[in-house]
């Protein structure tokens, strides 16, 4: 009985945190579904991409791959590069996903920017089951993206409501996560390094897909050079 209460309490703690993702993924999922259908790609491929690859911005990039000449090797390396930031999420989650048992590969499979942001945004309270918390966030987000894609691909043209700017909801969520981390951490060096290196990469490489890889390389470089001074207690 007690464990059932803890399960429900943990679920109820986690679910509201995904509301911004619910809005963002429905809007962007619909946009993706519409775009795929507008290019004459069948609904099943839109859904397959969202369920199997589940990689947000790379799915937009992949539309071009479906329309161009067949080149799976290029598709593979393109998605490694566009998704390279997941390497950082994995390194960040090595400790947190320890002891997740059979859930672990599933949690890794459905990792996204948004899931990472929620799971890493704040300390999980002691009375919350971490497994339930991580699983709820990860699988709800996955479900939202699937639903959005399906709506967009099947019935996207029926939407007349002006959604311009609505995708800002995900930016807003990342800004909130950043602010929350800033408030709860006294060591601000990693956050400052992240922002400055990313801005530098944006200036150097422009806003194309190389921007992320460039930013990651710069972050690693600066972190490594200034390791001693950066590595004050920064535990979540």
């Amino acid at each position: 009985m007690n464990s059932q209460n803890k399960f429900i309490r943990s679920f109820m703690y986690a679910a509201p945190k995904t509301v911004p993702v619910l809005i963002g993924f429905i809007v962007l999922g619909i946009a993706y579904g519409i775009l795929m259908s507008a290019h004459g790609i069948a609904v099943k491929w839109s859904v397959a991409m969202s369920l199997i690859a589940y990689c947000g911005s790379m799915q937009y990039v992949a539309i071009g791959l479906f329309l161009a000449a067949f080149d799976p090797l290029y598709a593979f390396f393109m998605s490694v590069m566009v998704n390279a930031r997941h390497l950082f999420y994995g390194i960040s989650m090595l400790e947190k996903y320890r002891g997740m048992g059979w859930l672990k590969p599933l949690l890794i499979y459905v990792m996204t920017d948004e899931t990472f942001s929620i799971q890493c945004g704040q300390k999980v309270p002691d009375d919350i089951d971490r497994k339930v918390f991580y699983a709820t966030v990860a699988f709800l987000n996955y479900f939202y993206w699937f639903v959005g894609t399906l709506i967009g691909a099947v019935a996207g043209q029926l939407i007349t409501f002006n959604t311009t700017g609505m995708d800002f909801v995900l930016t807003a969520m990342f800004v909130v996560t950043f602010t929350e981390q800033w408030i709860t951490q006294y060591n601000h060096k990693p956050a400052v390094i992240g922002v400055l290196c990313s801005v530098a990469s944006l200036i150097i490489f422009g806003s194309g897909s190389f921007m992320i890889v460039g930013a990651m390389a710069l972050i690693l470089l600066v972190m490594t050079i200034f390791r001693k001074s950066v590595d004050e207690e920064a535990e979540l």
């Binding site: 950082f88 990342f174 990693p190 992240g194 922002v195």
Partner: peptide, 15 residues
């Protein structure tokens, strides 16, 4: 890196 990247990476995402 596991201790520090969570904060740097959110900064990267915002930018």
């Amino acid at each position: 890196l596991g201790r520090t990247l969570p904060f740097a990476t959110i900064g990267l995402l915002v930018v």
